[in-house]
Design a protein around this nucleic acid. Structure first.
Length: 318
DNA sequence: AAATACAGCAACCGCTGTTAG
DNA sequence: TCTAACAGCGGTTGCTGTATT
């Protein structure tokens, strides 16, 4: 049984009635939103202005989209959250029809739980070492990556993903090691890559972004030439897996890698950092799959189970 | 069938930051 | 510069519907 809304200082609280909604809508249609403090008086509502504003912005606004979040929306939320942190209004601004409160609720009740369940820290978006209990493996692997890679004559996506994982997680206390690792990974040669040493195109954001540890479970994401690449040493891998200079300029790429290492949400300003638009070289990429379109892989997955299995497949690499 | 536990979500609270007069 | 109003955020509450015991 729903409790009746109680009153405090003559102001009604609790759930809004249809009649109240109508009054608010009619008033705002006639006068527009704003002047929230005086609005209740003129609209004939026994509510505080703040309550009216919240009711309007979170529920009554005509452009609000109700219903379940699509997978694309969820992807967007996760990506934006990894950049912006808990800036729900900024995230909502990039999701037409969704309110910050709705996104916040959805994050806390769905996405956050699923990330935690799959061993992803919802704050940093990094894999949780404590969850994986891989620290011993990682420590040894870190000092002997070359041997690790020699275990597999074929460099498949799992190896590269693991390498990324090592770089992003195994030495989280040592940023210098992180950067050294990624500098080596990304730029083993002279930073100014020439055409002779033109490396293979690699969907680098998918590899470098820790979030894609959740998502990379299909070989199709990688160019065939890389999947079948034979490498004897880590240097071999490094030298062959640089991005092409027409896909990225190297400084930006390293910057992105560096950001991926920490993957801390930026709280510095209100502006969304420039999105790195990935343009894969279609001539060398059998199936170009930009970061933002990773959802297409499971675009038709609409239920929670499918999303979860999709997210958790990354842990099969062990 | 009833009681209980849980999930989802609308709404509220208290606080801080921004803006306009 | 000060102040009030507004906007936004993070955390929380409490109601409703559903699942489980």
């Amino acid at each position: 049984m729903r409790k009746l809304p109680f009153e405090k200082d003559g102001l009604k609280k609790g759930p809004w009635t249809e009649e109240e909604d109508l009054k608010l809508i009619q008033y705002i249609r006639a006068h527009g939103p704003g002047k929230w403090r005086s609005l209740p008086k003129y609209a004939g509502l026994q509510r505080c202005g703040k309550s009216c504003r919240l009711r309007w912005t979170n529920y009554l606004r005509p452009d609000i989209k109700r219903g379940r979040f699509s997978f694309e929306e969820e992807e967007t939320i996760i990506q934006l959250h990894s950049i912006l942190g808990n800036k729900w209004s900024l995230i909502a601004a990039r999701l037409p029809g969704r309110t910050d409160n709705e996104i916040k609720n959805y994050w806390n009740t769905h996405i956050r739980k699923r990330l935690l369940k799959n061993g992803i820290d919802p704050v940093t978006h990094n894999p949780r070492i404590d969850f994986l209990e891989l620290s011993s493996i990682l420590n040894s692997a870190w000092f002997n990556l070359s041997n690790l890679l020699n275990l597999q004559t074929l460099v498949n996506p799992q190896v590269l993903t693991l390498a990324t994982f090592l770089g992003s997680s195994s030495c989280s206390s040592n940023k210098e090691n992180h950067e050294l690792f990624f500098n080596r990974l990304l730029n083993p040669m002279n930073p100014t890559l020439n055409q002779q040493n033109r490396p293979l195109s690699v969907p680098s954001t998918r590899i470098l972004n820790p979030r894609h540890l959740m998502q990379t479970n299909d070989m199709q994401d990688f160019p065939e030439s890389l999947v079948n690449l034979k490498c004897d040493t880590i240097q071999d891998v490094m030298m062959r897996t640089c991005v092409t200079d027409d896909c990225f300029d190297i400084p930006n790429y390293n910057k992105q890698a560096s950001e991926s290492l920490n993957f801390q949400p930026s709280y510095g300003g209100n502006d969304l950092p420039t999105t790195q638009h990935v343009n894969y070289d279609s001539s060398s990429m059998p199936s170009p799959t930009p970061l933002v379109s990773s959802s297409t892989i499971i675009n038709n997955s609409s239920n929670e189970d499918e999303r979860e299995s999709y997210s958790s497949n990354m842990f099969n690499l062990e």
